[in-house]
Simulated assay, not measured.
Amino acid sequence: MTDIKVTPHEQGAFYYGDEILHYHIQRRATDDERKVVIKVHPDERITVMAPKSASKEEVKAAILKRVRWIWESLLEFRQQQEFISPRQYAGGETYFYLGKRYRLKLIQQEETVPSVKLKRGRLEVCYSGEYNAELIKKWVMHWYEHRAYILYHQRLAELLPKTDWVTGLPNLKIMPMTRQWGSCSTSGRIMLNPHLVKAPKDCIDYVILHELCHIAEHNHSDRFWRLLTKVMPDWKANKAKLDEMAELYLNE
């Protein structure tokens, strides 16, 4: 499962100035890696990947050593959040597709069938009748889902030869999600978020390979991460790129 939000096993908190900051602890399956890894997310969550045997006191001590960096990261994300406003589905807004930005252009024409297409660096919506933001949203989202369906199947077919543990073509479903980029059921069915099509191709490949690895390893064990590293050595960079833009890609 490629989560946007992580479900914690343990929780902790600390003060910085007058503010109390909460963090979630995830445990590695083994103690092969002793380093405590701290991640500050765009939605201001703080997650900590810690060795299985590390005490809560040891984890907190590692956090406090980086408390200034954590606080500065939170401030940076808060400043970015100020520029993210709800979509109005009006001309001139910026929309993403495969990591590139496109300006929305609305074209009102009499007796025309509603259509959405990329043209000359713009996302053009042609329609007849009066402007209706809800209808514009519906057409744009349908376009994203259609493009996602085509692209995800293409990328899945391209990536499958890397995954010799997968037999046959996995069932792929497109499903809007608010907290996940993708998921994999125990039966091997893969679900992908249509909003992921807004990200660069390398990020899409990362999520697909992540879910394909779950067919062999149904958790985030060290074996899982080794398998993912084998098929995509630079997955960390692609994940970081996706995490950085998550709030913008998910802004409807």
Rank of each mutant, 00 (worst) to 15 (best):
I38H: 01
K39E: 14
K39I: 08
H41G: 00
P42S: 01
P42I: 00
P42E: 00
P42A: 00
P42N: 01
D43M: 01
D43F: 00
D43L: 00
E44S: 07
R45E: 10
R45G: 02
R45H: 10
I46L: 03
I46D: 00
I46V: 04
T47L: 05
T47D: 10
V48R: 02
V48K: 06
A50H: 11
A50S: 13
A50Y: 09
P51V: 12
K52P: 08
K52R: 15
S53T: 15
S53F: 05
S53D: 12
A54S: 14
A54Q: 05
S55A: 11
S55T: 15
S55N: 11
S55H: 07
S55R: 11
E57Y: 08
E58R: 13
E58Y: 10
E58T: 14
V59D: 10
V59L: 12
K60I: 09
A62S: 15
A62I: 09
A62W: 05
I63E: 02
I63L: 15
L64M: 08
L64D: 02
K65R: 14
R66V: 05
R66S: 10
V67E: 12
V67H: 07
R68F: 07
R68W: 05
W69Y: 11
W69S: 07
W69I: 06
I70K: 02
W71K: 14
W71P: 08
W71I: 04
E72S: 09
E72P: 04
E72K: 13
S73T: 09
L75S: 13
F77V: 01
F77L: 00
F77D: 00
Q79V: 11
Q79W: 02
F83R: 14
F83N: 13
F83D: 12
F83A: 15
F83C: 06
F83G: 13
I84A: 04
I84Y: 03
S85L: 15
P86H: 08
R87N: 11
Q88N: 11
Q88Y: 05
Y89D: 05
Y89I: 05
A90M: 09
G91P: 04
G91E: 15
G92M: 08
T94K: 12
T94F: 03
F96E: 02
Y97P: 01
Y97A: 03
G99M: 00
G99N: 01
G99K: 00
K100I: 02
K100W: 02
R101D: 05
Y102L: 03
Y102Q: 06
R103E: 12
R103G: 06
L104N: 06
L104S: 08
K105C: 09
K105M: 07
L106N: 09
L106P: 06
L106C: 06
Q108A: 12
Q108K: 14
Q108I: 03
Q109P: 06
Q109K: 15
E111W: 09
E111C: 07
E111Y: 11
T112K: 14
V113S: 15
V113K: 15
P114G: 07
P114T: 04
P114C: 03
P114Q: 04
P114E: 03
S115M: 10
V116N: 02
K117Y: 10
R120H: 14
G121T: 02
G121V: 01
G121Q: 01
R122D: 08
R122G: 04
R122N: 13
L123I: 09
L123N: 02
L123Y: 03
E124K: 07
E124S: 03
